[in-house]
């Protein structure tokens, strides 16, 4: 259980999150919605233990993140960053295998078990035939899926994803959402920053809405993702879903 209490975050002198209480329980799939610059990335970095919050505490199973060792955290929390390194010297499989670092760091023997798991992750994301190909030769969307495969290989019970659907085509957006949904039904905790409320409504049971000036609201998607809430969140008029918005089924 990952819990934030009285969380305060700011960036560049702007208050992004004020006094947020959030507890992410096993088996829950959370969406994180908000306008550009509303603090989605800051919240994810803080929850991953990569930035210290300006106020409040974040604890994993009752122990503050700051008091835990990096190696131990890496076996519990995996995070997909919005801007990950786009260059890598090796094959797609080499790249994905870096996700095994928290579990196996022997310099002497080849990690056959990890390689088999990595291939399974690649197959789940339609990249099975790309395994031996150079990472540099992948398209933007394929790289994004390789990053997600690496994240899944890290095999943590908490997954934090900053815009997992960026660069992905419609089909693969749905595929990634289904994969994350399976992770959650398998007992993992998943939180994903998304820009498409349709995906959130279809796959995520819970939602965090980050409004401007530090205000946030959270709860069940069915109660949070109403037209009125989303219009207030994005500060623009919306048409009812079903007429203007198409989602892959």
């Amino acid at each position: 259980m990952l819990e934030a209490a009285g969380l305060g975050l700011s960036a560049g002198g702007r208050e992004l999150v004020r006094a947020l209480d959030l507890s992410l329980a096993p088996g829950a799939f959370w969406s994180l919605l908000g306008r550009n610059g509303s603090g989605k990335t800051s919240l994810i970095l803080a929850l991953a233990g990569l930035r210290s919050p300006q106020a409040g505490t974040i604890a994993l199973d009752g122990v503050a993140l700051a008091a835990r060792r990096r190696g131990e955290l890496a076996r519990r929390i995996a995070v997909l960053l919005q801007d990950e390194e786009t260059d890598f010297w090796g094959s797609v499989l080499d790249y994905v295998m870096l996700g095994r670092y928290p579990h196996s760091r022997s310099a002497w023997s080849r990690d056959e078990e990890g390689a088999a798991l990595a291939r399974r992750r690649l197959a789940e994301l339609d990249l099975a035939d790309r395994a031996a190909q150079g990472y540099r030769t992948l398209s933007g969307g394929e790289r994004q899926r390789a990053r997600i495969a690496q994240l899944l290989l890290q095999d943590t019970d908490i997954l934090l994803l900053d815009e997992p659907l960026q660069h992905l085509d419609l089909n693969h957006q749905a595929q990634v959402m289904r994969t994350l949904s399976r992770c959650a039904s398998g007992g993992k905790t998943v939180l994903a920053a998304l820009h498409e409320p349709g995906h959130a409504a279809r796959h995520c049971g819970f939602a965090v809405l980050l409004y401007d000036a530090g205000r946030a609201s959270l709860g069940r998607s069915s109660e949070m993702l109403t037209q009125a809430n989303l219009e207030a969140l994005y500060q623009c008029p919306l048409e009812a879903a079903g007429t203007g918005s198409f989602l892959p089924s």
Binding site: L73, E84, E85, Q154
Partner: peptide
């Protein structure tokens, strides 16, 4: 090897 992914990602992987 992991540091090639950037400092934040390397930290998240336990470095």
């Amino acid at each position: 090897d992991v540091l090639i992914l950037g400092e934040d990602k390397a930290r998240s992987l336990g470095v």
